[in-house]
Design a protein around this nucleic acid. Sequence first.
DNA 1: CTGATTCTGTGCATTAATTCACGACTTCAA
DNA 2: TTGAAGTCGTGAATTAATGCACAGAATCAG
Lengths: 187, 187
Amino acid sequence: MLKIDRRIRKSQEALKKAVIELMLEKDFDQITIQDIADRADVSRRTLYLHYTDKFDLLDKLIEEHISNIREICESSDDAAGYTEMGLVWFEYFETHSMFFSVLLGSKGSVFFRGRFLEFFLGELEKDNSLSGGSDKDSANIRNVDIQFLGSAIVGVVEWWFKNGQPLPPDVMAQRIGNLLERNLEAR
Amino acid sequence: MLKIDRRIRKSQEALKKAVIELMLEKDFDQITIQDIADRADVSRRTLYLHYTDKFDLLDKLIEEHISNIREICESSDDAAGYTEMGLVWFEYFETHSMFFSVLLGSKGSVFFRGRFLEFFLGELEKDNSLSGGSDKDSANIRNVDIQFLGSAIVGVVEWWFKNGQPLPPDVMAQRIGNLLERNLEAR
DNA sequence: CTGATTCTGTGCATTAATTCACGACTTCAA
DNA sequence: TTGAAGTCGTGAATTAATGCACAGAATCAG
C-alpha cells in the first residue's frame, strides 16, 4: 500500500464525483471538460494532469469499481456461499448507488454494461461447479451456462437500480443466492 | 473583489468546517492541531500557512461571521424596519446554525458571546432613535439603553439556539422587531 | 520525579495545482 | 459563407500544499 499524495486523491475524487453528478443531470456527450472541472471545483488544467479526456476519466472510474468488487470477492472468498457473495455485491452496489444508478440507467451505459457483464463472466469462470469436460463441445456448453448466468445477474442488477432499489441488499442476496445455487450445484 | 486562489479557499474552508465539527464533539481545549488537520484532510503544515494556532483560526472564523452580518446589515439598510433587519439576521443564523449553535452553546463560548454583543452594541450605536442629549448624564442614559437592548438581543439568540431553534426565523424576526420598536420609538 | 509519549512550531526540498495565454478546432446562427 | 463564441489541449511561470524531520514544550502514567 503505497501512500498517495493527499492532493492527488482529493483532485481525483472530486473529479470522479463531479462526472457522476453531471451524468445524473445530462447526457455524457453534453458534458464538457469545463463542466467537470467547475463542478469538481478544480482547474481545468488539473483534469488534464490526471486524465487524457473525459472518456479516460469515465474509464478509470469504471475500472476502479470493477477492481474494487473483484477485491471484495477475493477477500471474502473463504468458503463463502453464493448468498454471502451476493450480499457483499449488493452492499457495495448500495454504497455506490449513485454510480451504478447512473451507469446502468442512462443511455450511454452500453459500455459499462458490457464491462460489468465481463466481470461476472470472469467470476463464473473461476467457479468449479461449472467444470465441464475439456473437449470442445462440453467447453462450449460450459460457455453457454456462463453466459446464461452472467446475463441473468447483470439483468437483475439493472432491474434493481432502474426500479429504485425496491428490495434491501440482504433480500436480493438471498434470492440471487438461491437462484445461483439451483443452477450451479444441481448438475 | 480580488480573486483568491482556489487552493487557499478550499484549505481555509476545510479547516474552518473542521474546527466547528470538532467543537461539536469535544471541548475546544481538547482539540489538537492534528485533530483539525486530520478532520480537514489537510496537512498539519497547511494549517500553519494560514493561521498561527487554533485560537487564531477560531478568531478569524468569528470575525468573518461578524463581518458577514455587518455587511448584510449595511446592504439591506435601505429604510428597513426592525422586523426586516431581524429577518436577515435570523436567516443568516439559520444558514450557519452549526457555527452559532456551537459557539453560543458550548462552555468556551464566553469570548464569542462578548464579540457578538459588541457587534449589536455597535449597530445600536448607529440608531438615531437612541439619541439622547450630549451632556454626560444623558449620554450615560443612552449607554444604559444600548446595553439593555444589546443584551436582550443576544440573550434571545442564545435562547433560540440552546433550545434547538424552536421558532422559524420569520416569527423570531417579527417578535424581535416588535420588541425593538416598542423600545426604540416610544420615547 | 522521571521517562515515555504526544503535541507543537518550524525549515526545507519536492510535488501538485493554479492562472494565464495561445492556436487549433467545433458549433451554430446570421 | 462567414464571423462570433465556445471548447479543447497544451506550455510556462508561479504559488500552494505536502511530507518529512527535528528540537523543544507539554502532558501523563508509574
